[in-house]
Every structure is written in C-alpha cells, then in structure tokens.
C-alpha cells in the first residue's frame, strides 16, 4: 500500500510540471507582452508611470529574457514565496483574490460529487437489477436527457422557471441581505436553501453518466459464477447482491472520481457564471476577457492542481477498498 502511494505521487510530478507549463503558456498567449498590458492598465487607471516602475516590472517578470527563464522566474516565485503575481486589473496580488473563490468552487464540486454518488449508486443498482422494467426505462430516459443537456442550459431553464412562476431570482449562494454579514445560523440556513440548485444543476449530467456506469458494471457482475456460489450457500438475494456483485461493481464506480472531478470543476465554472455564484467561474471569465492573465493563469493552475490532487486521493481510496490494486 505504501509503495503504491509513493509510486502514484511520483507519477504525479511530471503531470504537475506539465500543468504549470500549460498555465504559463496560457498567461503568455494573448498577443503583445505584458508590459504593454501593464502600462496600458496603469495609465488607464490614471496612475503615473515612471521608468523606474517599468524597469522593476521588467526585472520581476523577466521580460526580454528567453521564455524558459521567464517560466523559471514565475514558477520559483510561486513555489518559494507563494507569490502568484499581480492582478493587473485590480492592482492587488492574485493571492488576495483567489482563495475564497477556489474554496467555494471546490466545496461545491465536492458536495456535488457526494450528491451524485448518494443518488447514482442506488438508482444504478435498481436499474440493473430490474433491467428492462418500467422503472429502468424511466431512469434510462432521464439519464440520456441529463447527458444531453448542457448544465448551463439547465441552470437557465431553472432560473427562467423560478423567475416566471415564482417571481424570484435564484442566483447567488446566499440571499442579497446576507452577502456581507458574518456567519450565523440564519445565513447557514439561507446558504442551504440556495446551494442545492447549483449542486443539482452541476450534478445532473454526471449523475446520468454515473447511473449508466453503475448499471453497466453491475450487469457485468450480476451473472458471474461467484454470484451463483453465493446463492448456493443459501444467502438471500438482497444480501448476496450487496455483498458480492455490488461490492465488485463499486470499484470501477469509485474510480470514476478521477474524471468526475475535472468535469465537475469545469461544470461549476460555467454554471457559476450563469447563477452568479461567488466562485472562480465569473472571476476567471472576467480575467480572461480583460486579459488579466496572471489572475487567469493562476486560477487555471490551481484549479488543475487541486483536481489532480483530488484524483490522487480517490486513487488511494480505491486501492484501500480493492485488494486487487493494493496487492499489485
């Protein structure tokens, strides 16, 4: 088990390096060098730009140096000082802006993951055991519909319904009167009353996919010889179902977290724009549109890293559950 974890962590290192290179490339993608952007931004904000500031910036970002030096300067400041650079638009360190938002994004993504599991698991089992029943067809139909509906579209439809028929807007994570207040019971309850909508919206397509996966996995296992053995032991159908085929089918199900998490984070980012949630989505979109590249690049970098980390955790969890992986 320990060897397995060490090996997985070693595998992760090139991935992390590659992600940082990609993030850096994205920072550099917009045409023109940042200094132009900075000067443009600074003069637009009315600040006086003296040559000393420009020289300091030039040195700080390694402008004029070859790309790889720039990359090294950028990455070493992140690794050594936790310094992600400046948000040009707001003229504050990226650090001051992103962490709350990233926390909210990952909080919502993980809640969504739990929500998906809690429902997809029993529904998938039901759908497999009662294959070709009325219930199975209903589940399958909604599953396909969920897969085919982009989550932002679902968000828009739900918002339309609530505005049109309930006369209220459902955006945000808390009601407007709570936005700047300290945490209290009332605020927590208000949060719960709001947060279910993004969770359902973001989770819909993932849930549909997971139900189909669970159903297919279980159908694969349901007619295996070991199920017959368990039946021949005298176990009841229900307990043998949970004890054997469901347990085996559970593992590929758990391993889906590896691609679920990136998908959910992606979905959260689009949906949060629609529902105007205080998460990374609106901030990233705004940063990209205004070419505030250090902010955008840092968000992409950290969101990707956290996803990779989440995937690692899920792999370890999987090895812990499945002896076949643990003893490899």
């Amino acid at each position: 088990m320990r060897d397995y974890i060490i090996r997985r962590i070693l595998y992760m290192i090139p991935t992390i390096i590659a992600i940082s290179v990609i993030a850096f490339t994205i920072i550099r993608l917009p045409p023109g060098d940042y200094l132009t952007t900075v000067i443009a931004e600074l003069s637009a904000s009315g600040a006086a730009v003296d040559s000393g500031t420009i020289a300091a910036l030039r040195d700080r970002y390694g402008l004029g140096d070859p790309s790889y030096i720039q990359y090294l300067k950028w990455i070493s400041r992140i690794v050594l000082h936790g310094d992600f650079g400046l948000s040009f638009e707001k003229n504050v360190p990226v650090n001051a802006l992103i962490w709350d938002r990233l926390g909210a994004t990952f909080g919502i993504s993980i809640l969504t993951l739990l929500f998906i599991w809690a429902f997809a698991f029993p529904i998938g089992i039901f759908s497999a055991v009662r294959k070709y029943s009325m219930g199975d067809y209903v589940v399958t139909f909604f599953g396909f519909l969920g897969l085919a509906t982009p989550n932002f579209l679902l968000a828009l439809v739900l918002m339309y319904v609530s505005v049109r028929y309930f006369g209220q807007s459902v955006g945000g994570l808390v009601s407007p009167e709570f936005i700047d207040t300290a945490w209290s019971w009332d605020k927590a309850i208000d949060l719960v009353a709001h947060i279910w909508l993004p969770i359902v919206v973001i989770g819909a397509s993932g849930m549909a996919a997971l139900i189909r996966i669970m159903r297919a996995n279980l159908l694969d296992e349901l007619y295996r010889p070991y199920v017959v053995t368990a039946r021949a032991k005298g176990m009841s159908e229900f307990s043998l179902l949970l004890r054997y085929p469901v347990r085996v089918a559970l593992n590929p199900f758990l391993s889906t977290v590896g691609w679920m998490l990136p998908t959910l984070v992606s979905g959260e980012i689009v949906v949060s724009v629609v529902l105007s949630l205080p998460t990374t989505g609106p901030m990233l979109l705004r940063a990209l549109l205004s070419q505030d590249m250090y902010l955008a690049g840092s968000i992409i970098l950290i969101a990707s890293l956290m996803t990779v980390l989440g995937t690692l955790l899920s792999d370890i969890l999987l090895a812990w559950v499945d002896p076949r992986i643990r003893y490899q």
Partner: peptide
C-alpha cells in the same frame, strides 16, 4: 427461505471454475 435453508446447509455445491466461482474481493 425454505430452499435457502437447504442450500449450503443440507445440499452444497462446488463449481467448475474456482477462479470465478469465489467472490474476487472478499
């Protein structure tokens, strides 16, 4: 329950393929 009380207790069975006839992760 009647047949289940007989299965495994009064009449037991072993199968051809020992690899696939035992639960793989128990």
């Amino acid at each position: 329950p009647a047949i289940r009380a007989i299965r495994g207790r009064e009449i037991a069975m072993i199968f051809q393929e020992p690899m696939t006839s035992l639960g793989p992760i128990t």
